[in-house]
Simulated scan of single mutants.
Amino acid sequence: MAYVPAPGYYPIYNPPLPHATPVAGGLRPGMSIYVQGMVPHHTKRFRVNFSCGPQKGADIALHFNPRFDSGDKIVLNSFQHGKWAKEEHKPNMPFHKGQHFELVFIVTPEDYQIMVNGAPCYVFRHRIPADRVQVVDVDGDLELQSLNVIGGGMMGGGGMYYPQHGMPGMQNMPPTSLPMMASPASFHPQVPYVANIPGGLTSKKTVVVKGSIPQGAKSFCINFKVGRCKDIALHINPRLNEKIVVRNSFLNGNWGQEERELTLNPFQPGQYFELSIRCGNGRFKVFANGQPLFDYNHRFREFQQIDTLEINGDVVLSYVQF
């Protein structure tokens, strides 16, 4: 997809509803809104609004409203000058009660391209200029697990924007410790996935992997490899059948000692996950769904030579970005 630059806002995890995320500077072509959640069994309807202001009665550039209590359909509309415009309907409801979902809005010059669980859902042409959107707000009968505005960073070059009351624990981080990302995100890449990391890993370089675990999955792995040799500096191996996450390195033709201890395991069949893997001078720091997962001390100390990311096994990728 042509309109996917580097992330610009830190994800928000498990916020209470109603929830509103500011979009400083408005939406622009190349930006995306990424929403993960779960539809409870009692759901009647929920909505995602792209609002032109935080105040009640503000214009709404896009009203996305799945309705289970009105013929299992999605209603799309806009609200301007105090009035709703003409509704557009999407039949064949792609959301299912009791199931997790992934919802992506991709902003193009002409429209919003909407995807649900990796499949095209609807194209909604702009009625109100996207750059007027100031807030993405979510409410209704759903469990909102994460919301991420991708692209259009306030720091330039795909930098990160941190809201004043954003990610817990991030408010007091010094600017030099913020994650660095420079390359475009890849949406729904195929598995096995292999990508070159331009320039190799550097201190503070962060790789983000979003995906889901299919039912019946046994294992998958994420490998950070060194050039054309077979060395693996970091091997992350969730084993669903053993309910563990193995970390290791493969250097000079040999596997090292496995690390297995974890306080939580975020990898469950039928659920989405987000991994943030950050390279530091002495170790990798890995977060899952916004929570610390593990640290892994460098065994291959020339980490700048790590230039290949490889993902394979029983996993469906939503996007990868570094």
Rank of each mutant, 00 (worst) to 15 (best):
Y3Q: 12
P22D: 04
G25T: 08
G26E: 10
H42W: 10
K44C: 13
C52K: 06
K56H: 13
D59P: 10
F64K: 02
F64L: 08
F64R: 03
N65L: 12
R67S: 14
G71C: 01
F79A: 07
P91R: 13
F95E: 00
E102A: 09
L103K: 00
I106R: 14
Y112H: 05
Q113E: 12
G118Y: 05
R125A: 06
R127H: 14
P129H: 07
D131R: 13
D137E: 11
D139K: 13
V149M: 09
M154G: 13
M154Q: 13
G156R: 06
G156H: 04
G159Y: 06
Y162C: 12
H165S: 12
M167L: 09
M167T: 11
M170H: 13
M173T: 09
S177Y: 09
A182Y: 13
I197M: 12
P198H: 03
S203D: 14
S219P: 00
F224A: 02
K225C: 10
C229R: 08
H235F: 04
L240D: 08
E242Y: 06
E242N: 11
V246T: 12
N254S: 15
W255F: 12
R260L: 12
R260H: 12
P266F: 02
E274Y: 00
K285Y: 07
L293S: 03
R299G: 04
F300Q: 06
Q304S: 12
I306V: 15
N312V: 00
V316L: 02
Y319H: 14
